[in-house]
Design a binder for these strands. Structure first.
Lengths: 224, 224
DNA sequence: CTTGACAATGGACACTTGTTCACCTAAACA
DNA sequence: TGTTTAGGTGAACAAGTGTCCATTGTCAAG
């Protein structure tokens, strides 16, 4: 993820700051909970004293094409993302569809039901092209370095991590020297666990403390 | 199915046929619409004459751990998929979360908004762990053989394919000898295009006809 | 025969939630 | 100076929805 993202193509009608905030909250909410927020939940979030404040913004967002709703039905949103930068003109880079947060530093773990801290971008994987449900909470990390090449994970790949306790053999996202890296988690029968790089040129072993392991890598995604 | 089952093996807590049907409908509904169904919509789908019939099944599904709900709140489901066969005992196979159709043979293309034909299973990628929107249409193919190892795509990986015309350099899903395989699509300035395997031991080139290319591979997903 | 899951009917109640009407403020136009 | 657009307050209504109670019937296990 580069610092400047000229990718913010504003295909869609520009949103006001407030509208953007509302939209972001709605997306975030669904992301974390698996279902959409109700008008009143949005109202509460922004401390509006009337649901009509929300209604106004929703109407605006709908008119600008950012969202769709089913009139009268509860919690039935549909977000119209800028539809993947029409990756037709730019045949490189990820071509995508699903939106999952890319964390820069997840040292503090991933807070449940709270705005993610340390989000540095979003990974949009074509996976989402399919529809899908949810299990929120996972996040993605982009691989740097070649410490996992023996596991066929290369620099640039996105690794989907789910925060949970690791078991022997799992590849985990670990915080080492203030940096989040991927390592193999080894824990043999009764012995103390340790981490190991998957690159024969990195015969390194790493000790573990409570806060080291941030989650278990569950999938590798490489945009072609 | 069988008449006498002494003590059925319980993967997750067993679901009765009816319960499985309900669960499948709920998942499907969300998959297609992006939000969850209401009790009455489920009722209608199954032609129940009372919403309570649905309630009963939902209670059962909840007790068995298949779903979670927020009491009193509308359309707030959460599906607990068998959470990846606890892929600890069986360290192979996909461990997943998002649901995208896996096609066996996609010669006929992928029908829009219609039940996928030729679906032989479902890939549930942790990607979905994140929330997502939708853009349906893409599908997944599991890689067989080693013809793409030089592109770091290995047997067992799932490749997400989007039906569209390829461009030079794209990795495509191609129908060769009645089998769907992955190949590199090459088309140099004006010259006729051809396909090429990405394995130095397979210096094969393949000709192309209209129906060969089924789509462009957009991402590789490997369950860990 | 009895008990207990499983399936469903029917009707009713009450909370959730979307929607609307009336009215107000401030900034941007023109 | 009047008009429009964005943003909000307040209150109230009605439809969307989850939930519950009382009953009925089937079928396998004890």
């Amino acid at each position: 993820m580069d610092t400047c993202s000229p990718k913010q193509v504003l295909t869609m009608k520009d949103l006001t700051t407030r509208q953007q905030e509302i939209l972001t909250f709605i997306e975030h909410y669904e992301w974390r909970n698996g279902y959409w927020p109700s008008i009143r939940e949005i109202q509460e979030k922004f401390s509006f004293k009337s649901t009509n404040a929300v209604m106004g913004h929703l109407r605006a967002l709908e008119k600008k094409g950012s969202i769709e709703r089913i009139p009268g039905q509860a919690r039935t949103f549909r977000i119209n993302r800028p539809d993947a930068p029409e990756m037709n003109e730019i045949p490189d880079e990820a071509t995508e569809v699903v939106d999952i947060p890319v964390m820069g530093d997840i040292a503090a773990g991933y807070p449940d039901r709270v705005e993610p801290a340390g989000e540095i971008g979003r990974l949009q994987v074509d996976i989402a092209s399919a529809g899908y449900s949810s299990r929120r909470r996972s996040f993605a990390l982009q691989v740097r370095g070649d410490s996992m090449v023996d596991a066929e994970i290369y620099e640039g790949d996105m690794v989907v991590v789910e925060p949970r306790d690791p078991r022997d053999g799992d590849i985990v996202a670990a915080l080492i020297d203030g940096e989040t890296t991927l390592k193999r988690y080894i824990q043999k029968h009764g012995e103390p666990p340790y981490l190991k790089a998957e690159n024969k040129f990195y015969p390194e072993l790493y000790p573990i403390n409570e806060l080291t392991v941030q989650g278990v890598a569950k999938a590798v995604v490489r945009s072609l």
